[in-house]
Amino acid sequence: MIKLLYVNYLKNFQFELEFSDGTQGVFDLAEYLNNHHGPLLEPLRDEKYARRCFIDAGALCWPNGLELAPARLHEPRYLKSVA
Rank of each mutant, 00 (worst) to 15 (best):
M1G: 15
M1F: 09
I2D: 01
I2E: 04
K3F: 07
L4C: 00
L5N: 09
Y6T: 09
Y6V: 11
Y6M: 10
Y6H: 15
V7C: 09
N8W: 03
N8T: 10
N8L: 14
Y9G: 00
Y9S: 02
Y9M: 06
L10Q: 09
L10T: 06
K11Q: 11
K11N: 12
N12Q: 11
N12L: 08
N12K: 12
N12C: 01
F13H: 10
F13W: 09
F15G: 02
E16K: 13
L17P: 04
L17K: 01
E18L: 13
E18Y: 02
F19S: 09
F19K: 11
F19H: 09
S20H: 10
D21V: 12
D21S: 12
D21K: 12
D21Q: 13
G22Q: 10
G22P: 11
G22A: 07
G22N: 08
G22I: 10
G22H: 11
T23V: 15
Q24L: 14
Q24V: 15
Q24N: 12
Q24D: 08
G25D: 10
F27N: 00
D28H: 12
D28F: 06
L29C: 09
L29N: 03
L29E: 04
A30V: 08
A30Q: 14
Y32G: 07
L33G: 02
L33N: 05
N34V: 01
N35V: 08
N35C: 08
N35M: 06
N35S: 14
N35L: 14
H36L: 07
H36N: 15
H36I: 05
G38Q: 02
G38L: 04
L40S: 11
L40M: 14
L40R: 08
L41C: 05
L41M: 05
L41D: 00
L41A: 05
E42F: 03
E42Q: 10
E42S: 06
E42I: 10
P43S: 03
P43L: 01
L44C: 06
L44G: 00
L44Y: 00
L44Q: 02
D46C: 03
E47L: 11
K48D: 13
Y49H: 04
A50Q: 02
R51D: 01
R52E: 12
R52G: 04
R52A: 08
C53V: 03
C53F: 12
C53L: 09
F54S: 08
F54R: 10
F54L: 08
I55T: 07
I55W: 05
I55D: 06
D56F: 10
G58C: 03
G58D: 01
A59C: 11
L60M: 14
C61H: 03
C61T: 06
W62Y: 05
P63D: 14
N64P: 03
N64L: 08
G65Y: 04
L66D: 05
L66G: 03
L66T: 01
L66F: 07
E67C: 05
E67F: 07
L68R: 02
A69C: 13
A69Q: 13
P70Y: 06
A71G: 13
R72P: 00
R72I: 14
L73T: 07
L73Q: 02
L73P: 02
H74T: 05
H74D: 09
H74V: 08
E75S: 13
E75M: 15
P76R: 14
P76Y: 11
P76F: 07
P76N: 12
P76V: 13
R77M: 13
R77I: 15
Y78K: 07
L79F: 09
L79P: 05
L79W: 07
K80S: 15
V82D: 11
V82E: 15
A83I: 13
A83T: 14
